[in-house]
Design a protein around this nucleic acid. Structure first.
Lengths: 251, 251
DNA sequence: TAGAACTCGTTTGTGCACAATTCAACTGTT
DNA sequence: AACAGTTGAATTGTGCACAAACGAGTTCTA
């Protein structure tokens, strides 16, 4: 019996743009994307082409295309002749991502306040509600997902596709940052005061909404990337210290 | 004699990140990128894989990779089973690009003002000088390139790689917008008052620099995308009118 | 026994061949 | 003469096979 055809489920939909992508490739992309962003695959996990090809029941050609797309989004890291692995953001990258989010999410606020309709705000309130529900029942994964979704959908109210896509990329990378550095407890937005900003927007207070978002994102960043130290270095030093100790003891 | 080996020149360098990229692929990418952004290839130009493969003396496999990378940047448009062509931004896309630039380039100003060193400002002044030289001798292509380079390098002073790459993409798409809609005369920044913002930055005036940039980008946008009308529709109507006229006359 | 060089298995890079699709021109019918 | 259906060349999509590179384990040497 062949070991093919163990294909995972296949979601349809498509929101890509300008890229050639048939349905099957798109489904594979979405699966891998979700697996990485929702932290089913830990940062650093190797992603061998053969394994993926067999898992999804396609040839390496399709897998390669998907991996390169993910690499372009900085969700996977492809090194020459060494294949792909789930990206591990450095501390600097993590800081850059959050700084970029502050610029973008605060920058769109005037447009958002000017254009947001009551119906759109209701849709956002629904996301917040589901986010709270997920948090209440301890579903951290769903809670983080909905938290990110809130930020993305909020920004999309500015009706700017370039900005929307860019922020979506930043939010997905934030998930990787949380997976890499985040404390096991913390995760989504603290106490998730997302409702507050909706009130400010509904009141037409653009500056207030901007200030709220800036503070909110700084809070999130602080709760996720608390340490200033370079992790790779720290590990290396720790290892070398351990080796030296053992060596000293054993002689 | 074979028709291979007519390879165009090959620039070295590399500034990509996180992507696997062989030196040769990188050279091909840079060539195509420059050809599109510097308007050697008009928007809408078809880019057949075979032709490109023979031109660069490689197989279609490499070309495909490069085309998909360019598609991701929205510089080429790939449609299923129909191949790639140089992207033709719609009016909405053009507006989004400039709106995004306003958000980003104004948003980085505080960081830029806080971090910029005299040496870095001198390097920017040099770009402005070369931009003026190019404009004086009527080299529109170089002048546009240096104008974009100024904006990108200025933003990079904020030392945020995510933002830097995003803006670089927006600027390259701006070139496509200019090529698609721009008046043959207009092009780079009007009168290129780029020196002015450097003075504001040197003086530590973040708010002034922000205001300058906002005004500047609005000016550029107005000089490039003046018409509000939907071009595709207008063309279609024009064509149908012409057909109807001819038809009427010929019967 | 420590260290260096070598070999082999595994994984990735690349070109090629065949299948599928599109677009255009042609033919036949009304 | 207009239109629909069909055929064929050109172009893209996809899988496969071979070449190249990496890394781990082994062997050889000092």
């Amino acid at each position: 019996m062949s070991n093919k055809r163990s294909a995972i489920n296949l979601g349809s939909r498509r929101d890509e743009a300008g890229m050639a992508a048939n349905g099957r490739d798109e489904a594979i992309y979405r699966n891998l994307y979700a697996a990485i962003v929702e932290n089913y695959l830990a940062p650093g996990t190797k992603l061998p082409e053969d394994t993926l090809a067999e898992t999804f029941g396609v040839s390496r050609t399709s897998i390669r295309k998907v991996l390169q797309r993910l690499a372009y989004q900085r969700l996977v890291d492809i090194r020459l002749n060494r294949g792909a692995s789930v990206a591990q953001p450095t501390v600097k990258e993590a800081q850059d991502v959050f700084a970029a989010r502050r610029i973008v999410e605060c920058g769109v606020m005037p447009q958002v306040v000017a254009r947001a309709t009551p119906a759109q705000l209701d849709a956002l309130r629904d996301i917040v509600k589901r986010e709270h529900d997920a948090a209440d029942r301890g579903d951290r994964r769903e809670s983080i997902y909905l938290s990110g979704e809130f930020h993305v959908q909020l920004a999309r109210l500015a009706d700017n596709e370039s900005i929307g896509e860019f922020l979506a990329g930043l939010v997905s990378r934030s998930s990787l940052v949380i997976a890499t550095y985040g404390a096991p407890m913390a995760g989504s937005c603290p106490h998730s005061e997302h409702d507050d900003v909706l009130s400010l927007i509904a009141a037409g207070d653009a500056e207030g909404a901007q200030a709220w978002m800036d503070r909110h994102l700084r809070d999130v960043e602080r709760s996720v990337v608390p340490v200033e130290e370079e992790v790779g270095e720290a590990d290396l030093r720790k290892i070398l210290d351990a080796v030296a100790t053992r060596h000293r003891r054993e002689r």
